[in-house]
């Protein structure tokens, strides 16, 4: 669905390349997370793929069509939700959806159903100017989904959402992927990426520093070991962690088995890395 090979781009009058030879592909039915600090080249790559930015070298194609030749047919296959939702403020949520949807060919979803699903049914006939940031973000997602795109570009889709709405958004994205859409998700929210993505790529200074499934990355950048967690001796004190036990030969490790027999067992933790820690390790930057 999405194919990027040797992609390079330099902004006019800039000294350094914004994108420096990026390779990746996103298959139908896959949710691909594009992660990285601000200025890493995520938005530039997305703009190129959306056909909004020309003058690149390498390959950037959606459904086999090069982005530099993006036309109405190309854009009709794509749904996009930008980080900052933009709507006609004087029109209602429903009027906005109907207007934008009318420019896409083919079958569409019933806006009422999507509005209901994302908790906007009651606000559908209110002007967008009266919406909160979270409501605009949800409307933003509906606009990207309503024409049933084959490829979805989502930029921080859970930004400003409460946990319940963020979960609904993730569920909807997964459903669309299950129906065959390729999803390109740009985010700083590592928990959202971990929960929603089949694979993630970390972009650092215009290059992909790591790309794999979240589970594989967490194993690769973590330790192949476990610790045992037990209750603290004093009430309300912090729980106790055992020394680390390597995964290799764990079943025969007598010290580990003895640890399990001690009273107050709370659980056994693997020492996988989190995506947050991998982000920090690869970029040298804390998440904002």
């Amino acid at each position: 669905m999405i194919e990027v090979k040797g992609l390079r781009f330099t902004y006019p009058r800039a000294k350094a390349e914004a994108v420096r030879g990026v390779d990746f592909s996103v298959a139908a039915g896959e949710v691909f997370g594009f992660l990285g600090p601000s200025g890493a080249g995520k938005s530039t790559t997305q703009r190129i793929l959306l056909g909004s930015l020309g003058g690149y070298s390498g390959r950037a194609a959606v459904s086999g069509i090069e982005a530099s030749r993006a036309d109405g047919a190309y854009r009709s296959r794509v749904g996009a939700a930008f980080e900052f939702p933009c709507f006609y403020q004087k029109l209602t949520g429903r009027e906005n959806l109907e207007l934008f949807a009318s420019f896409y060919p083919g079958p569409k979803d019933d806006p009422r159903e999507l509005l209901e699903r994302l908790g906007l049914a009651e606000a559908a006939d209110r002007r967008v100017a009266e919406y909160s940031k979270g409501m605009k973000m949800r409307l933003n997602l509906i606009r990207a989904l309503i024409h049933r795109p084959r490829v979805l570009f989502l930029d921080e889709p859970t930004s400003g959402l409460d946990p319940a709405n963020a979960r609904t958004v993730r569920d909807l994205v997964r459903e669309r992927a299950a129906a065959g859409a390729a999803v390109f998700l740009t985010t700083h929210d590592m928990a959202a990426a971990d929960a929603a993505c089949d694979r993630v790529a970390f972009l650092v200074d215009g290059r992909i520093a790591a790309c794999d499934s979240p589970a594989a990355l967490k194993r690769r950048y973590g330790k192949r070991a476990v610790v045992v967690e037990r209750e603290a001796p004093e009430r309300d004190g912090p729980s106790l962690l055992s020394p680390e036990y390597p995964l290799d030969g764990l079943a025969e490790d007598e010290a580990f088995r003895a640890e399990l027999r001690k009273p107050g067992l709370l659980g056994v933790r693997t020492l996988d890395s989190s995506l947050d820690q991998i982000f920090l390790q690869l970029t040298g930057r804390e998440l904002a």
Partner: peptide, 19 residues
């Protein structure tokens, strides 16, 4: 929500891009 066929399928492609 029922399974949906993504846009850009053959049926969609045969329709005019913009009515």
């Amino acid at each position: 929500m029922e399974s949906r066929e993504p846009a850009g399928t053959d049926q969609a492609r045969t329709e005019p891009i913009v009515g």
